[in-house]
């Protein structure tokens, strides 16, 4: 179980003013479940993912993993504890090949060439629709498209096989065929990992519906958390409410999230 307990993360709004990126956030994630986090842009979803991965440090509050306080642990420690994070915007590496990154993700030597490692690496690439023959030796730099890098992110997650897997908008920038594949890969992995926790930050209805629970975030706060069947209709109404407001109408907070 992963628990976020009254966590606040402070940051800069870009104009030198201090703002609460996450504001007194509490949430819990049970083993064996898949969670979707959704909400308007800038609402704090990616910040919550980065907090769990140890990239952001809280100014107050605690993070507990199986009742162990991991608030002060760094990114590497969190990775070794079994937390993984597939970035929203994949990082490009000049000089590092696809094969190197998958070896590192699997905890192997970067240049490792053992047959078992190679076979695993090729399997992960195939699962996300990247042909090993075409991709394994390519540099993970600007010569790969955004969609290809996104698939590599997911392949690295599979190679790492963490207990808590966080995917940040896996649907962004991928084609329809890849999306269907990634949805299947992510949901199947969770089904086969009984003690695993999958957290998907998403704006996609299919991911929302495939999840056990949905967390709705905005303004750095969790506005709702509950069963997907309950929360999804609220979100649908909320989207309509906010859309009307953005087109000149008044935002009725009472109507939104009702």
């Amino acid at each position: 179980m992963l628990r976020i307990d009254k966590v606040t993360v402070s940051g800069d709004n870009g104009s030198g003013e201090k703002v609460e990126i996450l504001d007194n956030v509490s949430a819990s994630f049970d083993s064996g479940k898949m969670y979707a986090i959704t909400g308007p842009n800038g609402g704090g979803k990616t910040s919550l993912a980065k907090l769990i991965m140890g990239i952001y440090r809280p100014s107050s509050g605690r993070i507990l993993m199986d009742d162990r306080d991991i608030t002060d642990s760094n990114i590497t420690d969190r990775a070794m504890m079994g937390i993984g994070y597939a970035f929203q915007n994949p990082v490009r590496f000049r000089g590092l090949r696809v094969r190197d990154l998958l070896n590192i993700a699997a905890g192997q030597e970067m240049g490792g060439t053992r047959t078992s490692h190679r076979e695993n690496m090729e399997r992960f690439l195939r699962v996300v629709g990247l042909c090993p023959r075409d991709y394994a030796e390519r540099e993970a730099d600007g010569r790969l498209s955004g969609g290809e890098l996104k698939r590599l992110e997911i392949a690295m997650m599979l190679a790492r096989d963490p207990r808590i897997a966080i995917y940040d908008e896996p649907e962004a920038g991928v084609d329809l065929w890849t999306f269907e594949r990634l949805l299947e890969v992510i949901t199947n992995r969770q089904k086969n990992k009984k003690d695993g926790i999958t957290i998907v930050i998403t704006h996609n209805e299919r991911f929302l519906k495939a999840s056990d629970e949905i967390l709705l975030m905005s303004d750095g706060r969790i506005q709702q958390q509950g069963d997907a069947d309950e929360i999804w209709p609220m979100i649908r109404d909320d989207v309509a409410c906010r859309w009307r407001a953005s087109c000149g109408g008044e935002l009725d907070e009472a109507e939104c999230y009702r």
Binding site: I55, T76, R78, G84, F87, I104
Partner: peptide
Amino acid sequence: SGEQVIKLMSLGLT
């Protein structure tokens, strides 16, 4: 890039 370092740390490297 700091992002490169963070990505590799998230894969278990110091």
